[in-house]
Simulated scan of single mutants.
Amino acid sequence: MIQVTDIKQYVYCPRVIYYTYVMPVNKKVTYKMEHGREQHRLEMIKEKRRGLKSYSLIEGKRYFDYQLKSEKLGLTGKLDLLIETDNSSQPAYPVEMKYTFKGIQANIKYQLGAYALLLEEKYNTSIDEGFIYIIPKKEIHTIPISQEMKEYAQKVISAIHNIIEKEHFPDPKSKRRCHDCEFRKFCNDLY
């Protein structure tokens, strides 16, 4: 089983998968990572007191840290927030909370797409919309989840399983991203 967060990591750089599963190394937890986790924790406490109006939903039941799993996809993850509704066209909405100042990047969208795949299997219906909450700006963004996003997420899931099973050392996504990467010191071929 791989984690949904692995999809976000793979899109950022496939080597993160290699250093997590094939050749596990001790990651350096940065201040930025710790601060982000703490802000996420605090925002989850606040979110439990809020209503659904900011999501443009009238009714629904909320589940925090909702665990999802698919044997078929070999994928598991803990969704920040699941909003379950009586809407027959879309009975559930995935919500991911992110502490970022860079806006909504592709890796975050594909992570949301992977959660949509897990929810589609659970509810046996299409999940075509979700939300990303940007913590520093306190903004909720409605994200359309297209079929292309879901197909790309499935390709990434397959690629991750391939790296793990074949112990393949992938090329880096972009050398520009290496500066802030916690695995930087292990990629000796980049200098």
Rank of each mutant, 00 (worst) to 15 (best):
residue 27 K to V: 11
residue 32 K to L: 08
residue 34 E to L: 12
residue 35 H to Q: 13
residue 36 G to T: 05
residue 38 E to K: 15
residue 39 Q to S: 13
residue 39 Q to D: 07
residue 40 H to K: 03
residue 41 R to C: 07
residue 41 R to N: 14
residue 42 L to N: 15
residue 42 L to S: 11
residue 45 I to A: 15
residue 48 K to M: 09
residue 48 K to Y: 04
residue 48 K to H: 10
residue 49 R to L: 12
residue 50 R to D: 02
residue 50 R to G: 02
residue 50 R to N: 05
residue 51 G to Y: 00
residue 51 G to A: 00
residue 53 K to M: 02
residue 54 S to C: 01
residue 55 Y to L: 00
residue 56 S to D: 15
residue 59 E to I: 03
residue 60 G to Q: 02
residue 62 R to N: 02
residue 66 Y to G: 03
residue 66 Y to E: 08
residue 67 Q to H: 10
residue 68 L to S: 03
residue 68 L to W: 06
residue 69 K to R: 13
residue 72 K to W: 10
residue 72 K to A: 10
residue 74 G to S: 14
residue 74 G to H: 11
residue 75 L to N: 01
residue 80 D to Q: 10
residue 80 D to L: 06
residue 83 I to F: 00
residue 83 I to V: 05
residue 84 E to M: 04
residue 85 T to F: 13
residue 89 S to H: 07
residue 89 S to Y: 15
residue 90 Q to G: 09
residue 90 Q to A: 08
residue 97 M to S: 03
residue 98 K to D: 03
residue 98 K to L: 14
residue 98 K to P: 06
residue 98 K to T: 05
residue 100 T to Q: 07
residue 103 G to S: 01
residue 103 G to A: 04
residue 106 A to G: 06
residue 112 L to S: 01
residue 113 G to P: 02
residue 113 G to T: 04
residue 114 A to P: 08
residue 114 A to M: 10
residue 115 Y to D: 00
residue 118 L to P: 05
residue 119 L to K: 05
residue 119 L to P: 02
residue 123 Y to M: 11
residue 125 T to V: 02
residue 126 S to Y: 15
residue 126 S to R: 15
residue 127 I to H: 04
residue 128 D to M: 06
residue 129 E to P: 05
residue 129 E to Y: 15
residue 129 E to D: 08
residue 129 E to W: 14
residue 133 Y to H: 15
residue 133 Y to S: 07
residue 134 I to K: 01
residue 136 P to H: 10
residue 137 K to P: 04
residue 140 I to S: 00
residue 140 I to D: 00
residue 143 I to A: 02
residue 143 I to D: 01
residue 144 P to T: 08
residue 145 I to G: 03
residue 149 M to V: 11
residue 151 E to H: 12
residue 152 Y to W: 14
residue 153 A to W: 00
residue 153 A to T: 00
